[in-house]
Design a protein around this nucleic acid. Sequence first.
DNA 1: GTTCCCCGCGCG
DNA 2: AAAGCGCGCGGGGAAC
Length: 586
Amino acid sequence: MQPASSPTASGRAAWCVLGRAQGGATVLVELDASGTEIARSAFRPDELATEVSRREQTQHPRWVWSDTTAWYPRLLAAGVTVERCHDLRLVHRILRHSQLVREPSAIRAAEAWDTPLAPHVPERDTGATLFDLEAGSERSGGVPQDIDEALAEFSRHRAASEGSADPGRLRLLVAAESAGALLAAELHEAGIPWDEAEHDRILQDALGPRPGRDQVPARMAEAAAEVREALGDPTLQLESHPRLLRALHRAGVDVDSTSQWELAEHEHPVIAPLLAYKKMSRLLAANGWAWLDEWIHDGRYRPVYVPGGVVTGRWASSGGGALQIPRQLRSALRADPGWRLVSADVSQLEPRVLAAMSADGAMLAAGAGRDLYAGIVGAGIVATRQEAKTGMLGALYGGTTGDSGRVVPRLRRSFPDAMRLVDDAAATGERGGTVSTWLGRSSPAPEEAWVQAQRSANQPDAPSGEQERARRSARDRGRFTRNFVVQGTAAEWALSWMAGLRLALATFEEVPKPSSAPASGRVFARRAHLAFFLHDEVIVHAPAEQAEAAAEAIREAADAAGRLLFPGSTVDLPLDLQISERSTQK
DNA sequence: GTTCCCCGCGCG
DNA sequence: AAAGCGCGCGGGGAAC
């Protein structure tokens, strides 16, 4: 297919917009910095990678597309990465709700873009996966793919953002969210290097040898027998909570639930084997041999990450429980031969972010140095580190009872600015209001039914039961909005951190000898790359000779993210950083 | 038979 | 130890 028009010689494209034309051709529209179209070309879908790669090298545009999951995997499969993008679906969701946007009506009218991802449905018959590339298999869940729709939506985004109360912050948020979309696809493509044999050893140590189909592992069977013996119920089905609870009551163990923390408070011969059984059962069900068979291929675990999957802006995941890998299995994360894992996590990210947002001098001072909780003890606010930690969690989550409830008032006196920020967020939420993160992601408005229930319960003649229910519901919402501003801003910092890190790693030289692991693929076999991201920690998989440089890049990206979000702040965000062949459990 | 909810527990 | 926030997942069992 011939280009519809020739690229003009003048002007470098600031943005390249991708979309589909009638008839299935792929269309690429180049825009200059003012958003004016300077070139348009059309080509077959199989020419996409070549066309993108050429412009990426010569023009470094920001790629604008409907949905990263619909466009980027095929580029990665062809060995092409891009530096920057603008994900119309993810950005739409932010702008639609952001309190910073002064004129949201045009965005809100474009309802076709307010579409969640289609849920991931494994296609067992074909063996196809989420990121398979056949035309029509993209899971864009109804987001428009048409080029003119994309151009119109992008234009609405720029208008909303530039006309907003704080274009600078929204630009950062939009860029960070879109970088996250790129990284999520790259993390899936790269996979987490996973030592299947080590995982099997851990399972055998805990459960006994791998049993046959539908067989219970030996050590679980032994524990189950002890439980049945101790309860005098030889046929008890341990996996059924109602039956287990009844059997416990018959044996005189007076618990309200079968949860481990409640069981642990009782003394009875059944407790120890039951707790052991539950631990083994959990390991087998969540990350046992069936999980290994389903999720580990060619030494890689490839979970599906879902950027923006949590209302606060955190990522979610789909499939395999990627964000819940138990510490018990962390040692199964192992670098390829000659490679290293460079792991970093931020200590006490959320309270430190709160200190920065509120510019609370006392709290910033307490966190200067390494351990914030030790700093709170050192300032004489509480007696022990444990008190500092539970009190701080109570402040962030809205705890009112127990130790945290006792400590929070002391924190309120010592850190008035920080506490005012979260207390105000809670009060706004209780009133049914909206709160926003530092960069402008806003909490969802309450359901209409919630608003009605509050209004109804506030009538003087409302029944006391209804009033009490409404008050509890208002407090629930207040705890959500209290935490939203902190969790969401921490997520923004983490996205900025890894966005900078991702670009830094992309500049590393290729090493002469690629990884020998067959699963590393053509994109990630020759240089350090991100392999894992979890809220406040990253793992980089790096050739041994690049490990130190990767560690330095991680530190520099963290510092840069702090300066980017909180310019002029003294906030300290210390990293715990380790270079090893094998991930270690903390 | 399928769908949905609850419980419990893993992660931050 | 959980508590107070945000998630995903597996299993049982009620609802359909």
